[in-house]
Every structure is written in C-alpha cells, then in structure tokens.
C-alpha cells in the first residue's frame, strides 16, 4: 500500500467514522445519565430522512438539518417519556423507536416523493459542501509528507465532520469539567444522592436525552447530506448499533470513543477496498469478516477479556423517588 492509497483509506475512515462518532457521543450523554439507548439507530434514520426531505424541498441544507434534529429530538422525547416519566423498560422503548423510524421514514417518503421510499437526489446547496482549510492547496505540493496529510486527510471535509471532531473535547469538557457534567454523571451512578442534594433527576435525565437527540440528529443529517446525496430506505445500515458497540468499546469515555469510532470507521473503509487489503496482507480477507469485526470486538470487550467495560451503575433503572 503506497502513501497515497493509505491517505485515501484514512480519508474515507474519517468520513465513515463521523456518523459513528456523533451517535456514539449521543449515546455517551444518555447512558452516562442512566438512560440506556438502543434507539440511536432509529433517531439517526429519522433525522437522515427529514434532513434530506426538507433540504430537497427548500434547497437549504441548514434548514434541513434543523428539521432532522427536530425529528431526532421528537423520538428522544418519546424515549424520555417512556423511560423517565412512565418508568418503562428503556430497552423495549429503544427497540420500538428503531422500528418506528424504520417504518415511518419509508411510509412518509413514499407519500411525499413517491420514489419507492427515497428522497430525490440532493445537489448544490442542499448538501453540505466540503470545506477546504486555508493553505491546503499550497501545502499539498510544497511540503513533503505533512503537506499531503494536511491537504488530503485533514482538509476537504464537510462542516459536520469538524463538528464531530470538535464534539469530542467539548463532550469531555462538559462531562468532566462542568457542574452540569458532574451532576449528569452522578445521576447515572446514584440518582438518589442527586435527588437528596435537591437537584431534579428527571430534569437532568431529560436534558441528557435531549443532547442525545441533538447529536443523533447531526449524525443522521451527515448520513444523508454529507456522506450520501439523499435518503434511501434503511440507510443507517446498523450504524446506530456500531455506535453502541463503540460506546462499550470506549467504556463510556469521550476520547476513547473517538478512538473506537475511528477504528470501526477504518474497518468500514477497508471493507470498501478489498484490493488494498489483498495487496497489503497478501491474502484475501472476507468483506463479511470486516463487517462483523466491530461486533466481535465488542463481544470480546464485553466478555472482559481485554479490560472490563463497566457501565454506569444506575443505567437502565428508572428512578423511583420514594420506596
């Protein structure tokens, strides 16, 4: 594998890792506050659809993204209602949300656009354009090694990629350096203690779920307007579950989440380039194995063979004020 091919694969890695990263951080907020969320997939899907649909009609990707975030927030609201207000089973609620999004997106897409459950192809201002960072063109040729890395790998992504990367330090700062973050983590470990301190458990958990909706909304918007040009049925293709896997892989920590998502993104990028694997390793690796690898790695991590992944202690438990 020569240098340029490597850069190409890594470039694809960053693009494929972005939706995973945004969804993974979304899950991080939710689960750190004690709300399990296996509905990441559904929220991404709903947002991907509404973003593409509104962008196609208005021609503006920003209005589209706002609508997409709205869709994800609505599903988050349902999840919050079920798991916080009515103290239902959070896992079942997540499953329901995934199916709700999978069904509704196609039904509505068919009704609005009549193209077999997809939105029209997006182009121009209805998509996120790539941003060329300053000096990218000059550095490409002039500076060896670092120049191409800067120009090919770091520059030339859409806005949401940079937002995703920026979200990692922001998440870390919010969770570990602010009062809100401390309370949010506490509510995921010991809600009774938070309640005793006079802070609203319900309010904090709803805030966490809302942040989760915002981030999955961005992830979905990137899928249909950044990565691809339009919505197609089931376009998340299990990414919400991979993000969930990455979250466990990262043991519910933001910087590790970046690493896990880049790793899983790299596996996805490799699966697109079987020729590269074959020329590098000298033998063929089944695409299916690469597809399954994130899940297999997560099971291994869960088994505790490579460091133990301990979830937030109050995760999945509805909080009942008085016993």
């Amino acid at each position: 594998m020569d240098f340029l091919t490597l850069l190409q694969v890594l470039d694809t890695t960053i693009r494929l890792a972005t939706p995973l990263l945004l969804a993974c951080l979304a899950g991080l907020f939710s689960e750190r506050a004690g709300i399990f969320d296996i509905g990441l997939e559904g929220k991404m899907l709903a947002s991907a659809f509404l973003t593409a649909a509104v962008a196609a009609v208005t021609g503006s990707v920003l209005i589209g993204t706002a609508a997409g975030i709205g869709a994800a927030l609505m599903l988050s609201g349902i999840h919050g209602l079920a798991s916080i207000t009515f103290r239902g089973n959070q896992l079942i609620s997540g499953v329901a949300i995934n199916f709700l999004a999978a069904g509704l997106t196609v039904v509505i897409a068919q009704s609005w656009f009549g193209q077999g459950g997809r939105t029209p192809q997006l182009s121009g201002s209805a998509r996120f354009e790539t941003i060329d960072l300053p000096l990218a063109g000059e550095m490409r040729g002039d500076i060896p090694f670092i120049g191409p890395i800067y120009a090919e790998l770091i520059s030339g992504h859409s806005l949401l990629v940079y937002i995703g990367l920026l979200a990692v330090p922001v998440t870390w700062w919010v969770l570990f350096r602010t009062r809100f973050g401390l309370r949010l983590r506490a509510v995921g470990e010991n809600p009774a203690a938070v309640d005793t301190a006079g802070i609203s458990v319900v309010g904090l958990r709803f805030a966490a779920v809302a942040i989760c909706g915002l981030l999955t909304g961005l992830a979905g918007a990137y899928l249909s307007t950044g990565l691809q040009a339009g919505f197609v049925k089931d376009m998340t293709a299990g990414r919400g579950y991979i993000a969930l896997a990455a979250l466990i892989f990262a043991k519910w920590r933001p910087w590790y989440a970046l690493g896990a998502c880049l790793l899983f993104g790299f596996l996805q990028a490799l699966a697109l380039r079987p020729d590269v694997i074959e020329s590098t390793l000298g033998f063929e690796v089944g695409v299916q194995l690469l597809d399954a690898l994130p899940y297999i790695l997560t099971v291994v991590i869960l088994a505790g063979f490579v460091g133990r992944a301990i979830p937030p202690r109050a995760g999945g438990e509805p909080y009942v004020k008085e016993r």
Binding site: A96, F99, A102, G103
Partner: peptide, 18 residues
Amino acid sequence: ELIVVIQALVILFTGALD
C-alpha cells in the same frame, strides 16, 4: 412498511409505555 410502524406502536404501548 406501515406494518413496521404498527409493530413499533404495539411494542411501544404494550412494552415501554405500559
């Protein structure tokens, strides 16, 4: 896919929003 929606609603109401 309407069936998927109905299925989701049944799961939601009988399971999560019980």
